Computed example of a mutant assay.
Amino acid sequence: MAKARVTTTAALARHLGISRWTVSRVLNGHSGVKEETVRMVKQAMHDLGFQPSALARGLRGGQTATVGVCFQDLDSPVLAMRAASLQQRLREEGYQTIIELSGDNVELERGAIRRFVGQHVDGIVLIFSRLATDDPALRMLERSGTPCFWVDPENPVPGDRILLDRARSMKLVLEHLTGLGHRRIALLGIDPRNRFGALRIPGLRKYAPKCGLDFERDFIQLFHPGETKHTFEYGYELAGELIGQCAGNLPTGIIALNDRIAIGAINRLREDGIRVPEDISVIGYDNIAVAEHFFPSLTTVDHQTNRLMDLAVRGLLERLEPENSDLPPRESHVHPKLVIRHSTGPVRG
């Protein structure tokens, strides 16, 4: 009796008794796979006459070799970095992306999901989703059977998701500043009612006492309630307010919501002759491209974007395997990294 022809990576993986993820990494030349496994996969491909083809896979199995990706906009450098990294990883796996921008509008995000489902994408990735746990779009996703992977969702949605450990990032920041002798710290743009700010405040409150600080006593919070444009100009304006409010008795450290706010603040401080880091240390968040090339180069928190997106793609591909469709949802966390540059230094004696 003739053997069934192996025509998909999933079938090849089953034939070899290994995961489709491993087969995919071999096909795309990724590192981290044992040489013995690489030889085994290539030998099986030769013996079986297997030729990987994303298009053929779609024609044969009813798949489209496409993944729908939705995020807010391209104005945010961190979102642009995530989208580019995600698209590259999916491309390496033989998938094309259909990108929708929601503009931070929940109704537009719902519409994007409806279109993805209507276009029969193989899977969906939602970055910084604002959908509520009981949103009707989630019921539509469930009915369609379309796998969805969530990257840093605002709410505890049901499904596979990966989160950046922002509480840990505040631990790293506070340990760095207090290790340099800083005891009075300003928080610029970290609004507890904004989702990005709300994810930082609990970490600050948790780790401040462990670093010898009292959150109510030792921190100055400056933000415009409801502000959503976290730009260079916003940082410039907040720093001006800090200078006016402190009347010559500035804190010695600043933690900004993001790198753009940090850079805008440094520019405003410089106008008043306040030196960074000699007079005040400044830490940003996101590690955008300009952070390394600004003067002084910016100490900041790196999201580990490539690792986030690599795990998102891996999780989505694993969920696409028929045998994994009924597995319970999985949640993973990625630890951020503090990148220490020249915008932070010891408190002057």
Rank of each mutant, 00 (worst) to 15 (best):
Q63C: 07
R60G: 05
K229H: 15
D165I: 06
G145K: 12
T97C: 15
L298Q: 01
L180S: 09
L187K: 03
E318C: 13
K171C: 07
H224K: 15
G123E: 04
N194L: 08
R114A: 14
L174W: 04
L187I: 11
V276T: 13
F128D: 11
R110E: 11
H333L: 15
R330N: 07
G226L: 08
G284R: 01
T344G: 09
F196V: 11
E154Q: 14
L55K: 11
P251R: 02
G197M: 10
R275M: 08
L59N: 08
G103C: 09
K171A: 10
P296G: 07
Q119N: 14
A10W: 01
Q63T: 13
D191L: 10
D47W: 02
L172Y: 12
E100A: 15
M1A: 14
R115L: 14
I18D: 06
P329T: 11
L90S: 03
P153N: 10
G17H: 08
V41H: 02
I255D: 00
S169K: 05
H46I: 11
V313W: 00
C70D: 11
D302H: 12
L222T: 13
A80I: 06
L131T: 11
L257F: 09
N194K: 07
L242H: 04
V282M: 08
V6T: 14
I288V: 13
E142I: 05
G58A: 06
I263G: 01
E92W: 03
T228V: 13
G248E: 04
A265H: 02
L141I: 13
L172G: 00
V67S: 01
R275D: 10
D135F: 08
T228M: 14
V282L: 05
D259A: 12
I263H: 00
A4G: 11
T9P: 02
L108Y: 06
G159R: 05
G226P: 07
Y236E: 15
P277G: 06
L108G: 02
D259P: 13
C211G: 07
G189C: 08
E237Y: 07
D134I: 07
D259F: 05
L141S: 03
A262T: 11
S31Y: 10
R143N: 12
I127F: 01
R130A: 10
S53F: 06
A289W: 08
K337G: 00
F294W: 13
R260M: 15
I261V: 14
F215R: 09
N258G: 05
R25L: 10
A84G: 14
L59R: 05
R166D: 12
H293K: 13
I243Q: 09
E100K: 09
N324T: 12
T37R: 09
Q96K: 08
E292H: 12
R330E: 14
R82N: 09
Y95D: 04
D165F: 04
E318M: 15
L174E: 04
R307N: 02
L86I: 06
A2K: 15
